[in-house]
Write a protein that binds this DNA or RNA. Structure first.
Length: 277
DNA sequence: AACGCGCCCTGTCCGC
DNA sequence: TGCGGACAGGGCGCGT
């Protein structure tokens, strides 16, 4: 669920709904969602009195900037598998059943972090710390710097299955299992192919397919299989548009062959044996 | 040192 | 109806 398109949708929603508000306090109900070394007291002290100045995204992370840029605190939210970030005024906020952290604003609004499985992580940085951390993440697939040549350079250097390379956040940031499989489907490449076996032309097709599927998913406000919700607590609309992920046994929309599910390094992969090589 | 594996945790579904 | 096992979108630490 929460991959690049979902994080992007949430960031846009929160920018519109709660940007500009000032934090009155932070209540931590499940401290295991805080990064190691981040205490509830440190989180509260770092954000209290600061205003939410900007909401962005890096990879799958929603990035909330608080306070003036020369002395900012940066809250970085990785949603894990089941994390949600929902404004409390949202119509469906009452449906949240596993709120782990509540960020209260001075005007009575709040931002809720809800996470059934608690695989999500919240971390707090200053500008320098976040600069170092964000540099460890790989290329942004929707940036101009993500080109066929750059992707081909990455694939040539790796023996791992191409599906796994796409999941490596240090190489390409923001792609998870759903969109990795969808991009490979669109590009006509099997998930188990060794990354280094991709031709220049295949890398170019994969580059285009990845950008296209991520853009399409953002337009549809993300994929909800079960848990994902946007910043207003609503489900995304891309699930019916998935062509390969989760569709084993169904007919390939392109060639009519039967979509297969295989396990690649302990995680499901889906492909069409008829039109993926 | 790139890569695969096991684990973190809860909920749901499926087969018996 | 109950129960055990498999499985789920992610990421980290570890061993090789």
């Amino acid at each position: 669920m929460p991959e690049l398109p979902e994080a992007e949708t949430i960031a846009r929603d929160l920018r519109r709904r709660i940007a500009g508000r000032r934090i009155a306090g932070v209540d931590v109900r499940h401290r295991d969602v805080l990064a190691p070394g981040l205490s509830p007291a440190t989180l509260d002290a770092g954000l209290r009195g600061r205003a939410l100045t900007e909401v962005g995204r890096r990879g799958k992370n929603v990035v909330l900037h608080f306070g003036a840029s020369d002395d900012a605190r940066i809250l970085v939210v990785n949603l894990g598998m089941t994390g949600r970030l929902v404004a409390s005024a949202a119509r469906r906020a009452g449906e949240l059943g596993h709120i782990a952290v509540r960020f209260r604003f001075e005007d009575g609004e709040a931002l809720l972090f809800d996470d059934v499985r608690r695989f999500g992580r919240l971390d707090l940085y200053d500008a320098a710390g976040w600069g170092a951390r964000r540099a460890e993440l790989g290329l942004e697939p929707l940036d101009d710097a993500f080109t066929a040549a750059r992707l081909h350079a990455l694939t040539r250097a790796s023996r791992t299955p191409i599906r796994n390379l796409l999941l490596d956040q240090r190489k390409v940031a923001g792609v998870g299992n759903i969109y990795a499989n969808e991009a490979l489907y669109r590009a006509g490449i099997r998930p188990r192919r060794a990354a280094r076996s991709l031709t220049r032309a295949e890398a170019a097709r994969l580059c285009d397919a990845l950008r296209a599927v991520l853009r399409d998913a953002i337009r549809a406000r993300g994929t909800t299989l079960r848990d994902y919700r946007d910043g207003g607590g609503e489900a995304g609309g891309f699930e019916p548009l998935l062509e390969a992920y989760g569709r084993n046994g169904a007919a390939c929309p392109r060639c009519g062959a039967t979509i297969k599910r295989v396990v690649v390094t302990n995680r499901s992969a889906f492909y069409c044996p008829g039109c993926q090589r």
